[in-house]
């Protein structure tokens, strides 16, 4: 980027040593503030000592070990549920939301982008309007409504509200407006010539959709799928309100559970290990996709 700058301006702007040093000092300080909480959590998670009383700041605590991780894996919270079960629930919920919102979303987005039909605009507005409603504002009716769907016969009883399926359905429905809006925005930018050519060659709309559209939309599909996954993986409000059986609990719930009502009771090392277990997988994927995600969001934002 600097190479493209004409020489005259470079000479004027090019940071001299003094300016370079000053800027570096500022940026190092900012980096420190950004990294501080993250380093602190990692450091705490390695601390094997009296885990309820961190009384000094150390980068690598004396006798660093993975003991806290071991404890978290064995028994993350006081509830009778293993970390494996929590992770399994979180993963299932996240995958369900991801695939559900992606699959339903891309179908609708394709239609909104490529077809003309009655009430197209009204439907799109109705869907996008939901984007601004935070799920917690409709929590009460959703709770009551899902709670009405109960099946019970003999020993078997099922309450949609008190199940991962119910939470997953609610989250999928909540994630759909964004998925449709985001995918439509991307499909709008794909030139129509290929589809038209396919159509002239006798391909049906469905064939065109499957063979031409889906492969071309892969980047947007990946981003939408990941953001849907993230929604399910980090969801707290509905799962905390809806789920009462520990065997259905998720990692996000367990993290808040470990944090406890009062910070004084927090098992700090266990909490930190748990925080890293929850954050690391999605953070790494986010990091590798961030170019597309943030780029897509800002482009979408400008387009309105």
């Amino acid at each position: 980027m600097t190479l493209a700058v004409p020489r005259r301006r470079r000479a004027f702007f090019r940071a001299g040593w003094g300016k370079q040093l000053m800027l570096q000092a500022v940026l190092v300080f900012i980096s420190f503030t950004v990294l501080f909480p993250l380093v602190w959590v990692v450091s705490m998670s390695l601390d094997p000592r009296n885990i309820s009383r961190p009384t000094e700041l150390t980068l690598i605590p004396p006798g660093a070990s993975l003991q806290a991780y071991q404890e978290v894996i064995e028994r993350p919270t006081s509830n009778p549920v293993t970390l494996f079960q929590l992770a399994f629930n979180s993963f299932g919920l996240a995958m369900g939301v991801s695939l559900g919102s992606l699959g339903l979303g891309v179908l609708a987005a394709y239609a909104f982008s490529r077809f003309h039909f009655p009430a197209r605009r009204a439907l799109m507005i109705a869907i996008v309007a939901v984007l601004m409603v935070p799920s917690v504002a409709a929590l009460a009716p959703l709770f009551v409504f899902l709670n009405k769907i109960q099946i019970s016969s003999g020993d078997f009883s099922f309450n949609l509200r008190n199940s991962l399926l119910g939470v997953g359905l609610a989250l999928t429905s909540g994630a759909l407006p964004f998925a449709i809006w985001n995918l439509k925005g991307y499909i709008d930018t794909i030139p129509k010539e290929l589809e038209e050519a396919a159509s002239l060659d006798g391909a049906s709309p469905t064939q065109t959709f499957l063979r031409i559209m889906l492969p071309l939309a892969t980047p947007a599909l990946a981003v939408t799928a990941f953001l849907g996954f993230l929604t399910g993986w980090t969801e707290f409000v509905m799962s905390w309100q809806f789920l009462t059986n520990p065997e259905n609990f998720t990692l996000a719930m367990a993290l808040w559970n470990i944090t406890g009502q009062y910070a004084g009771n927090t098992p700090w090392s266990k909490f930190s290990a748990m925080a890293i277990i929850v954050a690391l997988p999605v953070s790494v994927v986010y990091l590798s996709l961030q170019k597309y995600i943030v780029g897509g969001l800002t482009v979408g934002g400008v387009k309105g």
Binding site: G105, Y110, F112, S173
Partner: peptide, 20 residues
């Protein structure tokens, strides 16, 4: 074509109608 479009939109609309 309008009918095809509705069929593409139907699944998402059904879910949102019921749960949103």
């Amino acid at each position: 074509r309008w009918l095809i479009a509705y069929m593409y939109i139907l699944p998402a609309t059904l879910i949102m109608a019921a749960i949103t």
